[in-house]
Design a protein around this nucleic acid. Sequence first.
DNA 1: AGATTTATTGGTAGCGCTACCGTTCCCTTG
DNA 2: CAAGGGAACGGTAGCGCTACCAATAAATCT
Lengths: 348, 348
Amino acid sequence: MPPVTAGVKARSRRGGGRPTIADVASKAGVGAITVSRALREPERVSPRLRRQIMAVVDELGYVPDRNARALASARADVIGVLVPSLTNNVFADVVRGIYEGLDQNHLQVQIGNTHYSQEAEEELLQTFLSQRPSALIVSGIDQSPAATALLERADCPVVQIMETGPDPVDMMIGFSHYEGGRAATRHLIEAGYRRVAFIGARMDPRSERRLAGYRAAMEEAGLFDERLVTTTVRPSSVTTGSELFREALAKAPALDAAFCNNDDMALGALFECHRQGRAVPSEIGIAGFNDLEMMQIAYPSLTSLRTYRYEMGRRAIAMALEAIAGRRPAEPVVDLGFELIVRESTRR
Amino acid sequence: MPPVTAGVKARSRRGGGRPTIADVASKAGVGAITVSRALREPERVSPRLRRQIMAVVDELGYVPDRNARALASARADVIGVLVPSLTNNVFADVVRGIYEGLDQNHLQVQIGNTHYSQEAEEELLQTFLSQRPSALIVSGIDQSPAATALLERADCPVVQIMETGPDPVDMMIGFSHYEGGRAATRHLIEAGYRRVAFIGARMDPRSERRLAGYRAAMEEAGLFDERLVTTTVRPSSVTTGSELFREALAKAPALDAAFCNNDDMALGALFECHRQGRAVPSEIGIAGFNDLEMMQIAYPSLTSLRTYRYEMGRRAIAMALEAIAGRRPAEPVVDLGFELIVRESTRR
DNA sequence: AGATTTATTGGTAGCGCTACCGTTCCCTTG
DNA sequence: CAAGGGAACGGTAGCGCTACCAATAAATCT
């Protein structure tokens, strides 16, 4: 079926025959700079010339060379985004918000995956910085000192997302994972559960803070017990959720609820309950974190702490765009908060 | 809490004080070209000079300017990737494969989201092409004629992913969605189900081909009935799965199985069965498409057609890298196939 | 009317790097 | 020992665009 002609397209050298700004300029009978302006700041060129130039642009199919533009203006039309994972639904939502917040803009996004590694983050930062991005968006507030230094010296706006905390490098948008963990755990206690387990995978700094919030709530109620905490460094997933829930039961057979560090884990725990014939919520209460869409469809529907991930991406970009435009955003540090969504899985 | 100093970082003009290749060259007492070579083709510089140059590079913290490099060499170290969605788990997996296939390489990825729109695809192609990417990866085989023309004229390798079909622009890696839909449907029929419904959201070209495969299998068995097909243009999701399954039941109350165009939909259908007290698999059989991880953890576990999405991303990049290196890949068109994973949800 | 601003356009000079072609020097080879 | 070849390095000349200024014409002010 595949024709034999399929193969590798050649990479020709310089030029490639594409029209340049000089071609447009001479054909339109104007200076190159005027063409440049007509494309970037149309209002600074008279309507007559503008039309004339645009006609030639269309005729020749001229598309400005972004590399030349970036070199000449010392600024690439690129926004660098560093996230620790692409698999994780949470970051997928944030990234979607970023893309959609950009929309009709001429800027491009470049995503770097740090794999939860500070070294990888530093390297990617170097790479991104080497193209003089228009802005940088980084995840979390736990950059290495070297990375922080790079960000501080970077001559572009920087937005830290996912969390809020003291000492923003520049701008910041997120919420408190500690308070989130605390609120979810309190809810379980108020719902009447006593032996509330914590189940957490991929204990990154944010998950650690959720755990700290859980611990605080348990201690406040005089219910904390080391054996109720089960964590792993493995990445979170539905499978890991099932497995860790089994582990938790083995360690603390009398547990009557589980606060999972995210929704995948919660779903895994729910399926494990089904499998073992444990009734949710009467025997076991389950709460997740993030409130992914599936939580309300699951049977029974799952309680979760809703976070505004998409919104976070959108507003991070909005803040970056403001800063690129030279305007100081009204609020350089934004706490988006969260909302506990109580559903069947914790209503007994 | 946020210190008042937080705000917008200034964007200074040209230079920014970063060391250039000339700085390194003079400090190392060599020509600029030699520095350039030492960084890009170390084997072409004598070991002594190389060490000397690298020492200065480290000392000065020199990082080559990617924009200048791209302009001078008429080639940006960027691979453009066009996908129709970032939310969809399927593309998330492919994208992950792409990122990991790249790994230690100096290339960067730039993702463009076409939102299943051919116009958006054309525009993004223009944008990508304007920076002379090292390679392009595009999703599907249903580009508009204009987009196809752009791809054919692009002087870089092009890989079409997700599907196989005739007339690759250059290289291609995927599988047959038609055969996948046919195989899944056949399995349901062989398992003893007779009134097998098709439930499909976001009917993009690939979903249409899955539907065509379903139809073929049903017709072969003399079971096809228009009323068994329920589709929507809305994006697929667990919620949409629940809703569409209800719709399907309203149209064809006697249906005894559902082939869903993807796994989110299948999970939604499963939850809806739980909710309505319909037993799976005895009353209703359910099969999904893609075999996301949650399928095997769901209760009952869900039958699905496994596709090799991560692998597809990895190999697409591998093919692109081969082509960039000027080597012709052994097989320019690759069919990755699929595998039907039979689980509890269709075992009655 | 003369002075001063404002709008519109263009010329010049790079941005920081690499392709291309030399040049130098050392090593073979007949 | 001359001729030839290869390895190692460097100079020159851009890549295609935009920042910075200058120049001109038109508009506004005193």
